[in-house]
Design a protein around this nucleic acid. Sequence first.
DNA 1: CGTTCCCTTGAGACCGCTCAAAGACCGTGG
DNA 2: CCACGGTCTTTGAGCGGTCTCAAGGGAACG
Lengths: 247, 247
Amino acid sequence: MADSKDYGATQCIACPLRKLPAFASTAVDPDFTQKLKKGEYKFATGETIIKENGATPHFYTILSGWAFSYRMLPDGRRQILDVKVAGDLIGIQSAMLATMTHGVDALTEVTACAFARDRFFDLFRYPEIAYNITWLASAGECALEQALLSMGRKNAIERTAYLLWYLYEKGKAVGLVKDNRLFLPMTQTQIADTLGQSLVHTNKTLQKLRRMGVAYINERELIVEKEDLLNELAKVDSPLPAKRPLL
Amino acid sequence: MADSKDYGATQCIACPLRKLPAFASTAVDPDFTQKLKKGEYKFATGETIIKENGATPHFYTILSGWAFSYRMLPDGRRQILDVKVAGDLIGIQSAMLATMTHGVDALTEVTACAFARDRFFDLFRYPEIAYNITWLASAGECALEQALLSMGRKNAIERTAYLLWYLYEKGKAVGLVKDNRLFLPMTQTQIADTLGQSLVHTNKTLQKLRRMGVAYINERELIVEKEDLLNELAKVDSPLPAKRPLL
DNA sequence: CGTTCCCTTGAGACCGCTCAAAGACCGTGG
DNA sequence: CCACGGTCTTTGAGCGGTCTCAAGGGAACG
């Protein structure tokens, strides 16, 4: 499943994510996290990190790279649920519910910190960690709610604007935005599967946003020209949380 | 906000929900839960239990009755996110993220056990409780994922069938189904807002399901005639968990 | 007996879908 | 070095699923 393993390549105490302003400084001793860490895994672009309907021996915190979670219907229709970047936790569901109800694929090369599933309950002996895990689960739920509102009640332009806004904000939080530019390794097929729209219509909607001078994607980069207009089109109701915990 | 309060009307140790097969017997001492409980609240039909974008002083476990969570757009469009029945936890989000990103309204008269928000973190000192809260958050996420898949990739018939299946299973779990009948206090407008469809088209789709002899709603009752066909139409991929924890 | 809420039905418009095909770019192998 | 296949983006055309608008009937309620 994993390409390579490199035990403890990154020391928790020296975790580069801790420096980012998006992450709350935690009360948890990094040495403790270090002990829980089972290793560091690398996944290739396009590789499946977690299988749908399977059980992983691990769950992960993404250290670097992009991934997405999805669900599929038997006939091949796919719905992308969320996009995952550095700091995001993936696979808790399998730890809680025994089976994964979604899969996770890598969009780029991904480095992830692995934690053992069979020691999952141990984490809850530490109130701060337990709290953080629940916090992240809640935030994930919140993101899904917004997506659901988008899919259910917004039209193509609003929905697409919302997704671009969301990705942009998410990128900002982990320091991936520079000069209104965000590296964005998603194809239009993947964007369509996130929006719950057809590829063709997604393409036309993106072009409309480009012609409106709001935002466009070029060479795997999202360029936001009018952030306030994007925001307005997106009908955003709640911004992303300013600080989030890091496991 | 709450209509009436009646401290400790129901003793946790005598909680009627514990008897239901859907709930796992917990390692948590009921006396302890009892101490955390801040009272029992009653909400009238149609009343708002938790305000969107507000902060509640409490979060709740529903003891009896039906409710739904939703998000609204500024122009009044509404998306219903989930339907809540006995045993469901509502309002954790506000406890975690400081503000509620969704509102919760009562569909019937609702009785709910209240827990104080300012003592929320205390709960995490007890690993079993912390674990249970996270479990419930994960399960909520899973339900939202299924809804998202439904909205994004299913057509009206499949989507409607899925919702009916979901409600039916949810009702079963808490012992509300008898003779293939489930008391279901939702109007077609509310069903439409759950499905992300227009009222008119929802009405026509429900009629199609009725004409197909699959299931129909009559006098606030959902009658499932062909459960297997409903299941097949719904394209269900993961069943509801057999056992869930009770806070 | 009027008002309100909910369900139902019809008709026409339009948003988004499917089908089809072509161009751009890229890596690979002959 | 060029031909080739693959992936991704773009464009056009026509269909149809779902929406909006409009209106009527039934039940509940004051």
